[in-house]
Simulated assay, not measured.
Amino acid sequence: MIFNKEESFILVSQEEISIENFLQNLENEYAKLKNDNLVIDLLGFSKLTPYNVISFLEIAKKYKKNGQSFVLVSNKVSYDDVPDEINLVPTIKEARDIVEMEEIERDLGL
């Protein structure tokens, strides 16, 4: 996994591994990353399904419960095909916007 620290989040991208291994590696790194907003770049996965995205649901819930943003980036799956608890956007720019909006909401106590 590749970690790039940006201003308000950590961008996590993958190397040549399966989505299942990527998710397992992410779970293994949770203790180190739980206090940061995460944007997960799934653009490199050529065969991504709604089921693959839904497999991130539990970790997405952990981040939300911990008061952090968790955003998946993929243009292969529609946000209509995944639960509302998962933030799914088609571009990194939109992921930045989601993180910023959620930070503002948390600052305002919403």
Rank of each mutant, 00 (worst) to 15 (best):
L23F: 02
F70A: 03
Y51H: 08
K34E: 11
L57Y: 11
F45P: 06
M101K: 12
E100V: 00
N66S: 11
R96F: 11
V53E: 01
D97H: 10
D84K: 05
L11P: 02
I10L: 10
E20Q: 11
N66E: 14
D81T: 09
A95G: 08
N37K: 07
K32L: 15
K47E: 12
K62L: 03
E100W: 03
L43A: 02
N25K: 12
M1A: 09
L88C: 08
E20T: 08
V71C: 06
F56Y: 12
K76S: 13
Y79E: 13
S46G: 06
S46L: 15
F3D: 04
L33H: 03
E20L: 11
V71P: 09
Q14S: 14
L88R: 07
G44V: 01
T49H: 05
L108Y: 02
I19E: 01
K34N: 11
L48M: 08
G44A: 02
V53S: 01
P83G: 07
G44H: 07
S13H: 00
L110G: 06
V53Y: 01
N35Y: 03
L38T: 10
L108V: 00
A31L: 00
E103K: 15
S8P: 00
L42I: 04
V12R: 02
E103N: 15
S74K: 02
Y79I: 07
L88Q: 07
D36M: 07
S55N: 15
A95D: 03
A31M: 07
G44N: 12
M101H: 09
Y30S: 06
K76Q: 14
D84A: 13
L48S: 08
T91M: 10
I86C: 10
F9D: 01
I19R: 00
K5Y: 14
N25I: 00
S8G: 10
K65I: 13
K62T: 04
Q68A: 09
N52I: 01
E15K: 08
V77S: 05
S74P: 03
L38A: 04
S55A: 15
T49G: 06
Q14T: 15
I98R: 14
E6P: 00
G44D: 10
E16H: 02
D80Y: 14
N52Q: 04
A95Q: 00
K32I: 07
L48G: 10
V12C: 09
V39L: 03
E15M: 03
G67D: 06
N4M: 13
R96V: 15
K64E: 15
K65R: 11
I59L: 12
